[in-house]
Simulated assay, not measured.
Amino acid sequence: MSKRIATLERELDVRLFTRTARGVELTLDGQAFLPHARNIVTGVDRAITAIRPGSRALRIDVLGLRSAQAVVLHDYWRSHPQTDLDVVTLRVNDPRLVVTAVQAGDIDASFRSVTDPGTLPRDVQMIHAFDSPLELLVGPRHPLASARTLTPSQLRRHRIWVPGIAPRSEWAEFYDQLATDFDLRIDAAGPHFGDEVLLDILADSADVATLVGSRDRYIWPTNHDLRRIPIVNPTLAYPLFLILPRANPHPGLRAVINHLGSLAPLPETVWRPSWATTARDGDDRPRSDLRRRR
């Protein structure tokens, strides 16, 4: 330490310390230098903390801040307000890019799905988070607007407009299977100008409907009089998974996963896409691995 101080004094061309009968004391230059030195050390410590897993905020990617993932994560944070949580939205549609971000440590986890779990890298795992049941969202003039519940067969021949279905996205494959299995007319034509424009169109239309998750957050003017109608027999479930590292996941993920496991289950009669069933069947080992590391 004495040699380092001497080197620093030579570089600064000042004396920082002086020896007295009582020991070593700061010179006037040393007193002026000390608060700046402390700020430098504090800044370095904060920089390291900001990137070190376990000491920095838990960083989780959600598809959108109005999505079911964000709503459930917000419910968790409300019951655990001491959690240092950083909610982000990666602006990518291809889940493989999300996997790369998890591998790189840019995020700790993401509410996304890889529809072919066999293609996941060995250092990344995907565990089932929860299922989001779908509802039909329509305006007051739509023929189905007065229904309290609907079955998938009742949706046939009605135009279900879902703008923004991106190629190679998990939701593109979801809607492809949904349309095939229930002979539905799902239309993704046209650009997506945002939820507000979509809600305006639904309010004015007598023949356009869309599908939303039961937990998705949508807000519209009172005069829109839109209706959210649950779909039953079977319940159409959009499966949500959590992608995270297999080794050394952020310690904060344990409590989040426990919260997801406490969510109320769906009814027994549920439709899920085939890839979701495959992923759930292979879900036990990654989940138990994570719990053993508690």
Rank of each mutant, 00 (worst) to 15 (best):
R185T: 10
L178I: 09
F193W: 07
I201D: 06
D187K: 07
D200Y: 02
A179H: 00
I186F: 06
D187M: 09
T210N: 08
L199Y: 01
S214V: 09
D216S: 15
I201W: 04
D183F: 00
V212T: 14
D195Y: 01
V208N: 03
F193D: 13
A188S: 11
F182R: 10
R217A: 14
S214T: 07
D187Q: 08
I186V: 14
D216P: 01
L211N: 04
F182S: 02
A209D: 03
A188K: 04
R215K: 13
G194M: 09
L211D: 06
W220T: 09
I201M: 08
P191F: 03
V212Q: 08
D181P: 01
R217S: 15
V197A: 12
D200W: 06
G194T: 06
G190E: 07
Q177K: 02
I201V: 13
H192D: 15
Q177L: 11
V208L: 15
L198Q: 13
L211G: 02
R217G: 01
P191S: 09
W220C: 04
G213F: 02
L184D: 04
L178V: 08
Y218L: 15
T210M: 12
I186G: 03
A203T: 05
E196M: 11
A203E: 07
V212R: 07
D207N: 13
G194S: 02
D187T: 12
F182P: 03
L178M: 14
G213S: 10
P221D: 05
T210H: 05
T180R: 15
D181T: 11
A188I: 00
L198C: 02
E196Q: 15
R217Q: 13
D204E: 13
A209V: 04
S205L: 11
D195F: 00
A188W: 02
I219W: 05
V208M: 15
V197I: 14
G213L: 01
V208G: 00
L211I: 05
L184C: 05
I201Q: 13
L202H: 09
T210Y: 10
D200F: 03
R185A: 07
I201Y: 07
G213N: 02
